[in-house]
């Protein structure tokens, strides 16, 4: 049974733009998948549909056995608790320390303080930021801030980690650091990772499954794929 399945998915925005046309896709549990494509190819829309920020206009989006398209607004939180999300702009709260930013996610779920402490320190260790627990986000570099965001995304042990251009604001060296962190999470925790990117170098180095989108259509879906310029 595939962990994620998209069946005849179409997404048309209210302004008449169609971002995804008739997309069929299956992603296995524990895999590491790149979604590549130029601007306007629909990769962000695809990620947004996976965490139910957007609803597909047609078709089914199934994540872990749950039909996300049919999920009511009130129940979206049930899906969000099972996945972690990382963004290009980190989305950290500037007035909270690194520790508090990560703990915030668990506080919202009403976890016990002792459990919060244990889980937060574990995930900060996993991203290699255990020595910066009491810093504020603006005292950190971009790469470190992104690692805090990753720590927050994985603190609740999600089965799925969605990353929307996580290296978009970082230089190549910092980007590779982030990719190593993600790969370790994928390996050690068995978390399925789906990452939208247009960073050619990263995709070619990592040698993972690559799904290529072009103007809303699926072009290629290859295990151990490469960033193919001609396809885009």
């Amino acid at each position: 049974m595939d962990f994620i399945r998209l069946i005849n998915v179409e997404k048309r925005y209210k302004n008449g733009v169609t971002a995804i046309y008739d997309l069929n896709l299956a992603i296995e549990k524990g895999s590491f998948v790149f979604i590549v494509g130029g601007s306007g190819s629909g990769k962000s829309t695809l990620i947004k549909m996976l965490y139910r920020e957007e609803k597909p206009t047609k078709g089914q989006v199934i994540v872990g056995g749950l039909d996300v398209a049919k999920l009511k607004n009130k129940k979206v939180y049930r899906l969000r608790r099972k996945l972690g999300i990382v963004f290009q702009d980190y989305k950290l709260l500037p007035k909270l320390t690194v520790y508090e930013n990560v703990a915030f996610a668990l506080e919202c779920l009403g976890e016990k303080k002792s459990i919060i402490r244990q889980k937060v320190l574990k995930s900060l260790e996993d991203v290699g930021l255990k020595n910066k627990v009491h810093s504020y986000p603006d005292q950190l570099s971009g790469g470190e801030q992104q690692r805090v965001a990753i720590a927050r995304a994985i603190v609740n042990d999600p089965k799925l980690l969605l990353c929307d251009e996580p290296t978009g604001n970082l230089d190549p060296a910092k980007s590779m650091e982030i990719m190593q962190v993600l790969e370790e999470i994928n390996k050690n925790r068995g978390t399925t990772i789906i990452m939208a990117t247009h960073d050619k170098e990263i995709v070619n180095k990592m040698k993972k499954q690559v799904i290529t989108l072009k103007e809303g259509h699926l072009v290629t879906n290859k295990k151990k794929g490469k960033y193919e310029d001609e396809a885009i």
């Binding site: 965490y51 009130k74 979206v76 939180y77 049930r78 899906l79 969000r80 608790r81 099972k82 999300i85 989305k91 709260l93 915030f104 996610a105 919202c108 779920l109 009403g110 927050r152 609740n156």
Partner: peptide, 16 residues
């Protein structure tokens, strides 16, 4: 607003 957005992303219920 920003805090609420993050709360929604990490799975806080509407009640929370």
């Amino acid at each position: 607003r920003k805090e609420i957005g993050i709360m929604r992303l990490v799975g806080a219920s509407n009640f929370t």
